[in-house]
């Protein structure tokens, strides 16, 4: 007779908790959470001229923001630091995420690294990406 393992919802819950702990890191004494994976969330909008990437990441140190374009991938990095000079015991509530983040996205089209432009306004990072000349859409006219 075939033996089947029964599904244990509590085990599933514990697994999810472990995953969350991996993603957000331990709440270290400094209260700093190292973020990895899905922060910040990203939207992509394509048009004939290129691709626009948008990522909300409020309060990031401007000097830490970095955008790298290689082949068909773009990587964004940044860091948000805690308020200077505020001890942990002064906090009544801490919901905002702190720490470094890095996110790499494969766009699908070969990109031109020399024509990428990034801006940061109102806590949203916007990266304008241009396709490499060979990947730019071409209009094919019908000859017959």
């Amino acid at each position: 007779m075939e033996t089947r393992s029964t599904w244990d919802p509590w085990q599933e819950m514990r697994r999810l908790q472990r995953e969350m702990a991996t993603v957000f890191g331990d709440a270290a004494p400094g209260g700093r959470w190292l973020l990895a994976g899905d922060y910040p969330p990203i939207n992509l909008t394509r048009d004939d001229g290129g691709i626009t990437l948008e990522a909300p990441c409020p309060g990031v140190e401007r000097a830490s923001l970095e955008t790298t374009v290689i082949g068909d991938t773009v990587t964004i990095r940044g860091e948000r630091k805690a308020e200077p000079g505020v001890p942990d015991e002064a906090y009544h509530r801490r919901e905002r995420m702190l720490g470094s983040f890095a996110r790499t996205m494969r766009i699908g089209d070969r990109l031109d690294p020399d024509r990428a432009e990034a801006s940061y306004a109102h806590g949203i990072l916007r990266v304008r990406l241009a396709r490499a000349p060979e990947a730019a859409p071409k209009k094919i006219s019908i000859t017959s």
Binding site: P58, E83, A90, R93, E95
Partner: peptide, 22 residues
């Protein structure tokens, strides 16, 4: 919005993440 609230000697400070707001 996600917030942090901390206390100093003279005041309370609230920080709220509101990306996209002008």
């Amino acid at each position: 919005p996600r917030v942090d609230i901390y206390e100093t000697e003279k005041s309370y400070v609230l920080l709220a993440d509101m990306p996209g707001v002008t």
